[in-house]
Write a protein that binds this DNA or RNA. Sequence first.
DNA 1: TTGTATGCGTTATCAC
DNA 2: GTGATAACGCATACAA
Lengths: 345, 345
Amino acid sequence: MANNDSHSGKRLTLKDVAAKADVSPITVSRVVNGYDGVRANVREKVEAAIAELGYIPNRSASVLASSKSKLIGVLIPSLSNVVFNDVLRGIYDIATPANYQVLLFNTHYSAAEEERAIRTLLGQSPEGLIITGGEQTTAAKAMLQASAVPVVQIMGEVDNPIDINVGFSHFDAGAAVAQLLLDKSYSKIGFIGARMDRRTCERLAGFEHVLSAANSLDKTRVITTPEPSSVSKGALLFRELMTITKGDCDAVFCCNDDLALGVLHESKKMQLKVPEKFGICGFNDIEMAAYAEPALSTVRVNRYNMGSKAMEVIFEKITSPGDKTTPIANYINTGFELVTRKSTR
Amino acid sequence: MANNDSHSGKRLTLKDVAAKADVSPITVSRVVNGYDGVRANVREKVEAAIAELGYIPNRSASVLASSKSKLIGVLIPSLSNVVFNDVLRGIYDIATPANYQVLLFNTHYSAAEEERAIRTLLGQSPEGLIITGGEQTTAAKAMLQASAVPVVQIMGEVDNPIDINVGFSHFDAGAAVAQLLLDKSYSKIGFIGARMDRRTCERLAGFEHVLSAANSLDKTRVITTPEPSSVSKGALLFRELMTITKGDCDAVFCCNDDLALGVLHESKKMQLKVPEKFGICGFNDIEMAAYAEPALSTVRVNRYNMGSKAMEVIFEKITSPGDKTTPIANYINTGFELVTRKSTR
DNA sequence: TTGTATGCGTTATCAC
DNA sequence: GTGATAACGCATACAA
């Protein structure tokens, strides 16, 4: 931290650069924004002045005057969940090269915090919004509708998309896992879940749906907690499952890999043979899943793609304003994939 | 996405609210900003108008007029590295309750990208900047100096802090690990590192320093790659280490836990007895470290604290402007801690 | 190709 | 306690 160098106090503006380069402010503006119609020698003169002065354009003024913000608002429910890392990477990898900025909010799985974030975000003329899931408050939805800003709801398949929806069906994914375990001849299948947000509940619903149809559903084998998930929580919940069912359980679907890794760890301590006597399936396919012993069966979801697709769709919307001839699909299914490894028969 | 409701097209401003509430725009502004000096009944009238119209203040205009942005710029080199999740959480947990926004940039370990990000950031009148390490370009450093914005360099101990430095000595940490392994009677100690950013290099330097002093340094046991680290990369590099040294190696320090987990996995495949015949020490103490088998010895660093402390220091600077009587320390050591588990004797 | 006038929506300042 | 006026720094629209 230090003082401003020469022009201490006052912030440098277009005018200062213009004076130095002996042109008008608007010409400087044109150079800054890379307009073609500026003579080469003038451009060079201006660029030299900018460099010499160390001029940095004031973005607030620019946004105010042009109402172009190059800003994308992103709302995710958690910063601890590694799942969102990949999603964010996908978003940034598309946004940054296009010179768009990302304003990220952590909503802590709270619709109220989300609404507050949406409000502040909307005050900054964002050119697009990426939000998680479809459980916004009605007030938030109304604001979004009224704003006319492209909105992408990511992660899950939502019921009435505000605008565009990029994700996959967690119900189907949960169902697929149940079917997989059934196919592997497990019959007393439990469920371990933490946090229990909307999408986790949907996975559970799909899972229960299939088990129920196969007459294999026993809800005492469903152990959940609203607390955040972790490896240690997985171990804890697994012990609970085994206590409650008195060990009458031969497989478990964990709502994410962290939990599953904890279950795996604990099952070894219990000397439970995985996968022969006990099958474990996780969710997300984090890198460690492949390196667990036995390697963890899980469900691969295209996290990075959800992020990059969301950004791409926003750019499509931005660049084809009101173009009704080439409608953009309002649901993009990023799918999922069962990954069977050694933790299931 | 939809049309604006009533006043379609035009965006709502203070003036609209003022008209509706039959007061002047400035009064609305006062209500919006929670000034005390507004009569209760006027305030209520204004608030009603705001609610009815669904008015959202334009932040660009506000920032332009007041040059108060409530914006903190954060620059991190990677979004894949889980280390930064915790740092970010620490930042957000302090910033958000104070109504500050966080504008996050991913610099991809590139000083050039970092400089670009700093430039755009500085254009938005941030009230504080949190940047990673001390390897900014000289141009970037100059801009930061000139800006008079509080700057916190986090993660490592940097040489000439631009302003404030929050982190710990990676050199010392690397040295401590070397000493630990030596103390456990390992003598042919290798190093496996990926990415090899500045802080990783410092850990290696500290490590080599101690080994060298103990006459145990053999640089052929140092295997590194500029590529990003991962569990699989750990396994790969470990095989390389064993090939190059023809197995003449009895311990390894991995520059992070992911790598170490990969080494652990691979050593089992090689039937190498850990920790008896081979010791492994990681870095960071991610949750999985404790759940590996054998559990991984590692170094705990206070990631969350680095983030929260950085924000706290910025707030101190903001709230005590130029207060020379209570100087803020320009280096805050967040420390580290050796965590010895079963992967070392 | 370059410049002039004007407005973007808010807040600071100073009246009332 | 409330209001009028003038910035804030830039970009749009148009003129030259």
